[in-house]
C-alpha cells in the first residue's frame, strides 16, 4: 500500500489546519461562531446589548463561519466555513486574516 499524498478535500472528518494540514477531526475542538467581537466597553451596554453578545448567534441552515482549535495538535485557533447540513468544510484560514 503506497502512501502517496493526495490533495485532500477539507471535510468534516478530515479538517485542514492552516498550520498542520489535514488532520483527523478528533484532534480539533469547536469554538462556536466566528467574528463575535467582544464589546470594547461592556459597562456602557444595556442588558439587551450585552445579552446579544453573550447569547445570540446566527444559527444558519447552511454555510457558517466558525472558530476551530487544533487542540490536540498545534493548539492554534483558526476559522472555518462549514455547512451545518452536510458538515462540509469548504475552507479554513488563520485567525485575523481575510477569508480566502
Amino acid at each position: 500500500m503506497s502512501t502517496v499524498p493526495r490533495p485532500w478535500r477539507t471535510d468534516m472528518l478530515t479538517i485542514h489546519c492552516p498550520w498542520c494540514g489535514p488532520r483527523d477531526e478528533t484532534e480539533f475542538s469547536y469554538g462556536g461562531e466566528a467574528d463575535i467581537a467582544r464589546p470594547a466597553a461592556p459597562d456602557g451596554l444595556s442588558d439587551a446589548a450585552w445579552a446579544d453578545y453573550l447569547f445570540m448567534r446566527t444559527n444558519p441552515k447552511g454555510w457558517h463561519c466558525e472558530q476551530w482549535n487544533h487542540a490536540h495538535g498545534c493548539r492554534r485557533w483558526f476559522k472555518a466555513e462549514r455547512h451545518t447540513v452536510t458538515y462540509e468544510i469548504r475552507v479554513t484560514w488563520p485567525m485575523h486574516r481575510e477569508q480566502p
Binding site: 500500500m1 503506497s2 468534516m12 472528518l13
Partner: peptide
Amino acid sequence: MAHVQLLAATSVFGHYDQHF
C-alpha cells in the same frame, strides 16, 4: 500491486458522513 491492500475477513459495518 504495492498500491493495493486486500483486507479479507473484514466486515465493513458502517458508512458515516463523508466517506468515513
